[in-house]
Design a protein around this nucleic acid. Structure first.
Lengths: 243, 243
DNA sequence: GGTTGTTGTAATCGAATGATTACTTAAAGG
DNA sequence: CCTTTAAGTAATCATTCGATTACAACAACC
């Protein structure tokens, strides 16, 4: 996500004479295999789309963030929509993967240490403990900011037929994972998802940015993010510096 | 919201000669006072912005939905951003008003009938009962669809400085109302808001549209909307017919 | 060393869009 | 009537943006 910003300086021009004068700042990016470039573009696209939404983002912003030219982005993915859909799939996949990792680790008995730090008031059954552990994993994803906001942007772009269909499918995938693989009851799964949507919203409105200036914001953030708040605040400050 | 679509047919043209031939379909909308027109435009804008987001909407779409010309929209509000902000304020105000009405009615003892239908498992204190009543009021707003999605769209447009600031303020206003006026504890208020954000999300991804075709969607919707589900499904079908 | 495929860009095009200007036309008020 | 004001539009402008085209340069292979 903290890619680069090198080169640019488009008027580098031909410099027709290949005299000793170094042809400084070639206007062309370093040549790397298309598969790798694709990953870099998707990473950049995730950040841009997460920040500005589908309609609010331009392929040029993605290109700039990835350090290459706009036509290359379009040619590699065909259309802006296809790029968005692929970035969305990645984000969705990462979230599912994070949850499955928690479940697998729990079932393998690798989380005995983490279990000590859970709120003891909420029961000791597998679903209850997994719910808490997954909530922590979810909050960890906030640090990235790109992933969760990318999903959120897809959720409000339901009027774009292709995006809406994918968003519906993706949301139901998450619900099924939480219900079937983690074993939560529908009502518990619902509450879990609801907490996630609230976190997304608080991140979306950039509430961490006014944490210091507004005591209401402070209370709501502390109440929602709990132990993960310091991490989120740190990430928020870092992102503000990055601009 | 179900305004019109009359007139149009721009090439109506001057028809220079005022002969008997009826100057059919005058390309100009009915003249009404600016204050009324403003309300119509705001209503139309709420629907358009709710559907397509800030960046994804055009002033011309709003104009068409309101039955007038695009320049008039721009001249009346100055900029698209100003129009969005005013529509956002209206939506926010309607939500706050709906909650305050519930609280006032409850405190005036006017809701004895509704109290019989509440889930008796969740306590009989004022905050608990108000929480349930406000949740019902919130779900009632889903019927409109415009109001809640308008707010949601603002929540994900945080990168627009003016919109982000207003969205933050608005969200905190709602939180404070729920906490201070309804008397919920921070944790309870948080859970209440979380359920609201989940409802928004389910509406955003248009989950009601696949209610009949997906049993997972069916379960999640039933579990989240409860008694209000039939109403939401009906509204969803009505909106699909309207296109 | 020439040919060929891959990685990349500059230039540009057409459509869309927010905004502006200048113009109509209905009402209101003497 | 006739002037003035308010309500509304057509026409158009300058940008922006996604996409296309044509081309450059590096690498690999024979």
């Amino acid at each position: 996500m903290s890619s680069v910003a090198k080169k640019t300086l488009g008027t580098g021009a031909p410099e027709t004479t290949p005299t000793g004068q170094a042809p400084t700042s070639q206007a062309t990016a370093e040549r790397i295999p298309a598969a790798q470039r694709r990953e870099l573009i998707l990473e950049a696209a995730t950040g841009v789309f997460a920040e500005r939404g589908y309609a609010g983002s331009t392929t040029d912003q993605v290109a700039k963030a990835a350090g290459i030219s706009q036509p290359y982005v379009v040619r590699m993915f065909g259309t802006k929509e296809a790029l968005f859909l692929e970035a969305l799939d990645r984000a969705q996949g990462k979230l599912l993967h994070a949850f499955r990792e928690v479940i697998a680790a729990y079932d393998a008995g690798e989380l005995t240490e983490e279990l000590q730090h859970l709120d003891p008031a909420v029961g000791s059954g597998r679903p209850e403990q997994l719910k808490q552990l997954m909530a922590i994993a979810y909050a960890d994803l906030v640090e990235d900011r790109g992933i969760l906001m990318m999903l959120m942007q897809a959720f409000v772009a339901g009027h774009e037929p292709a995006i809406g269909a994918r968003a519906r499918e993706g949301f139901l995938d998450i619900y099924r994972l939480v219900r079937d693989e983690a074993g939560l009851l529908p009502e518990t799964a619902r509450d879990f998802l609801a907490q996630g949507m609230l976190m997304n919203t608080l991140i979306g409105i950039r509430l961490p940015e006014i944490y210091e200036q507004d005591s209401t914001a402070e209370e709501l953030l502390e109440c929602t993010l709990r132990a993960k708040l310091p991490m989120v605040l740190k990430a928020s400050r870092a992102q503000r510096r990055a601009g």
